[in-house]
């Protein structure tokens, strides 16, 4: 039995030699390391799925964040009859936006892997659940598959925007969602690895540049595009398309790109979108409002 979930390749080989899915393998490894039962792990993960669903539903209501920068977009996208996206991608984007908006409004969410990227995985899984008739049991296994991907990335690169830019947050969330989607659609563990590699290559180098340091712009909408990107990567992998570079090496590149990334592009709000004229004006207005409210107190 593998003890450390550090290499994607090792996980794929182990799962394929045992003839089981990545999620099943993850469940076995974790039950062993955490000295607990499958039942307990499944129950705990199911609670996360339920919270994700609640945050998606709550996020569709048209509430707004304290700054006024977020809210109402998921409702707008849901009402819009999509002429470009297929139904799964459309719904995934709606849910991803909803969860991310709910997060911005101080709602209850499940970090997956982070709060800033919390919409992508539920977006993809909940849409597949509804439109492809997958049971909650299957979706819970999807979360274990995704968690395995997140663990490999966390141990070889990073999941934090401050060290790896947005590619570390939304990129990892997308890789997790892509891999889970492949498994849920009947793909092999090898295809999961391919989906992960394809998604991470697409988002490599994405900077973390939140306006006024808030997890709102551009974070919330990147969750929607991230969900669709994850589905694209998963679809390619399911079609048998292979990444020329394997997932483990792509994750290595993710780490080195994160290290090379200038500090102004890693959650400091000094570069990228945060440094635009409009962004600086928004930040100044928010500061003014805050000072005014402090004076009132």
């Amino acid at each position: 039995m593998i003890e450390e979930m550090r290499s994607f390749n090792e996980l794929v080989l182990e799962a394929e030699s045992q003839g089981i899915t990545l999620s099943e393998l993850t469940l076995c490894i974790q039950a062993d390391t955490l000295k607990t039962t499958r039942r307990e792990l499944l129950g705990k993960m199911r609670k996360n799925l339920i919270t994700m669903r609640q945050s998606a539903e709550n996020g569709k209501k048209e509430t707004h964040s304290a700054s006024g920068l977020s809210g109402g977009q998921a409702a707008l996208l849901e009402r819009h009859s999509a002429g470009l996206l297929g139904e799964v991608a459309h719904l995934a984007a709606v849910y991803a936006l909803a969860v991310a908006e709910h997060n911005a409004c101080m709602g209850r969410i499940v970090a997956a892997p982070t709060a800033g990227s919390c919409g992508i995985l539920p977006g993809v899984l909940l849409a597949l659940g509804e439109l492809r008739g997958l049971s909650d049991d299957s979706l819970v296994m999807g979360l274990f598959n995704a968690a395995a991907v997140g663990m490999v990335i966390a141990q070889n690169a990073s999941l934090s925007g401050a060290s790896g830019g947005c590619a570390a947050e939304c990129g990892s969330a997308g890789a997790m969602a892509a891999s889970a989607a492949v498994e849920l659609m009947g793909g092999t563990p090898e295809m999961c690895a391919q989906a992960c590699a394809l998604e991470l290559k697409a988002i490599m180098g994405l900077v973390c540049d939140p306006i006024a340091g808030l997890v709102e712009v551009p974070c919330v909408k990147r969750n929607a595009t991230g969900a669709v990107l994850a589905l694209t990567a998963a679809e390619m992998a399911l079609a048998g398309i292979k990444s020329a570079v394997c997932a483990d090496e792509v994750i290595g590149a993710l780490k080195s790109v994160g290290c090379m990334m200038h500090e102004s592009l890693r959650e400091t709000s000094l570069g990228g979108i945060a440094a635009t004229k409009t962004a600086r004006e928004i930040a100044a207005k928010l500061k003014e409002k805050e000072n005014f409210e402090n004076e009132k107190i």
Partner: peptide
Amino acid sequence: MNVFDIIGPTMIGPSSSHTAG
């Protein structure tokens, strides 16, 4: 590290470092 460090924590948003922390 375990699966619930990746899928979790359940928290009030918007930021794991600034709000949950």
